[in-house]
Write a protein that binds this DNA or RNA. Sequence first.
DNA 1: AATGAATGAGGATTCATTCAT
DNA 2: GATGAATGAATCCTCATTCAT
Lengths: 189, 189, 189, 189
Amino acid sequence: MTESPGAREAGVRRNREALLAAAAAVFVEQGVQAPIRDIAGRAGVGLGTVYRHFPNRAELVIAVYRHQIEECVALASALQRESIAPGEALTRWIGAFVEFLVTKHGLGVALQSEDPSLITLHALMLEKLVPACASLIAAGVSAGEIDPSVTAYTLMRAVGNLCILGPGYERAHAQDMVARLLVGCRSAR
Amino acid sequence: MTESPGAREAGVRRNREALLAAAAAVFVEQGVQAPIRDIAGRAGVGLGTVYRHFPNRAELVIAVYRHQIEECVALASALQRESIAPGEALTRWIGAFVEFLVTKHGLGVALQSEDPSLITLHALMLEKLVPACASLIAAGVSAGEIDPSVTAYTLMRAVGNLCILGPGYERAHAQDMVARLLVGCRSAR
Amino acid sequence: MTESPGAREAGVRRNREALLAAAAAVFVEQGVQAPIRDIAGRAGVGLGTVYRHFPNRAELVIAVYRHQIEECVALASALQRESIAPGEALTRWIGAFVEFLVTKHGLGVALQSEDPSLITLHALMLEKLVPACASLIAAGVSAGEIDPSVTAYTLMRAVGNLCILGPGYERAHAQDMVARLLVGCRSAR
Amino acid sequence: MTESPGAREAGVRRNREALLAAAAAVFVEQGVQAPIRDIAGRAGVGLGTVYRHFPNRAELVIAVYRHQIEECVALASALQRESIAPGEALTRWIGAFVEFLVTKHGLGVALQSEDPSLITLHALMLEKLVPACASLIAAGVSAGEIDPSVTAYTLMRAVGNLCILGPGYERAHAQDMVARLLVGCRSAR
DNA sequence: AATGAATGAGGATTCATTCAT
DNA sequence: GATGAATGAATCCTCATTCAT
């Protein structure tokens, strides 16, 4: 009778989070096209529950990644407010982006997919991430540290691609390759 | 009824080649996961004929790309025999590899796929391409032009990834990014 | 906490009526097979509440239409008590029935559906409406105005069918067709 | 070796016809929305075979009914060429249409369905049947036998509706009701 | 009583693969 | 050898219905 009032809501939130965690894990293992049923199974819920929380695959994919995308955006602002060299700011930011991508592998593929169910994710990157990156690049260009012909979208795509991992090409390799790519983006002077 | 004995074999070979051409084209348009039926249709043969020639998708994928992989290998030898700077040789060879990859888009993805049906393709890369690349790198390192910490497999994977194209990230962008990556692979000194 | 004892019951009745109104509206828009959830949403109540009040779809359908069916029955008695020609009484009564059917489109289909979830509605028609109609017909036959071979059930079914509307076949068309059907039911004399 | 050349084609055609027969039967029992699997089962073939022959439900529905629709159209021409009274021609033609409809019950519903998968069937009726009927009506109007305010589309819809059968409302009842409707369509004079 | 989250059966559709001709 | 018809597993998604709170 005297029930904690939010017991239900708590359960719902727990389910939602179990789903997000399960989805993230399954995406890592099978990619973002994994069967919805697998995600339901991993989360320990019924198939319908997935659809209740996320009416289609795209919603789920976005929910899985939106938070981290927004953290990346916030980091870009923070770095620009610090008193560090713009080139260094870009390097650190890309480092964080890489960290994000290699943690959720599968996202590298998803971010650049032409799959109609994932356009929204792609759009999210375009809207949020690309401007953040562009602003860091602009600062670096002004400081004479970054080659002015580097564009944010291309760089993000390239970094995204470099973060598609596989056996024998792990996180550290991706980090190394991205670092070298950034060397190649420095101002030719 | 009374056919010249070689007529049959000629027809078989012609079919095989039509299939390889069709598969290459379809892979470019739809990726290596395209429905087998589409390939049969494009080649103007029956579905069963595809399976007769290539018992599974991997065989077909490999057959499609083996020739070009071998050309790449041959090019590496040729470049080493020429009297050009080893760094330049590596650059040219990677350029040719990029050319190969962006022409067959879909292959970038395939090359690093963990998909069981494509492991053989991956193995082929390991066996043939990696040694060729390693030898060019070794020469560059000896000449003090290439950073000794660069490994062939990682570089090939990275280049392969950078060649996964999409709308807004086309051939020229990939070429640019690969060039910058190579800048970052030069000897630090 | 301390509610007046009847407050609860009043709320229950209000819910029940909101549901009937919502169901009627949704049946018009989507037919009697509309998702129960849509009805709950339209009524502004939870899904469970629908099931509490109406354990299955048939109960709900019947509840929605029973009142109007009974009005039709009452009208038949009233018309017979008036001093008008029996044929005219039948015509007017069928007119009212048509009005009922076309206002609730979806009912036309429901009335004659073999769908097990709707048999009860069909039974209701049989029990109530058919006798009412039969009595009007009998009077018309006695007066020599109606063809004695016309049976109530068949006529009701026919009228019900004629009232299944659709684009290009609207209320006025149904009324016209029903009128012509009644012309064909007049005594051949 | 010496196979009858058309053995395969014959089997295919037999399958196709088995499917049409099965579909017709299942449509009668369950309506045109019956599960495709039921049709496959009734025809004794796999599910995929249905889709091979008829890529979607609409194709199947149309295939089932097209032939008879065209026969109806042909009959209209034939009747007009005969030297019978136009009103009689219309009556006979409608009689044939009724015969068609009651034989395939389920079609009555389908013909006037707003279901997007059945628009083509509806379109077929509009294109073929309505003009045929209109021409018979026009002749009847010219001869002073048919009420000029009767339109072909409305009449066809009405007849279609009257042919939606059910328990207690069988073929003979539909025929009777249609006959009475036609009486009501005669010239008022 | 009311709620709405969870469940899972049901039905459509696609496509790899087999095999009789 | 070639063909393509047939098959059915796999997957998506919807919705009726139950039940804990």
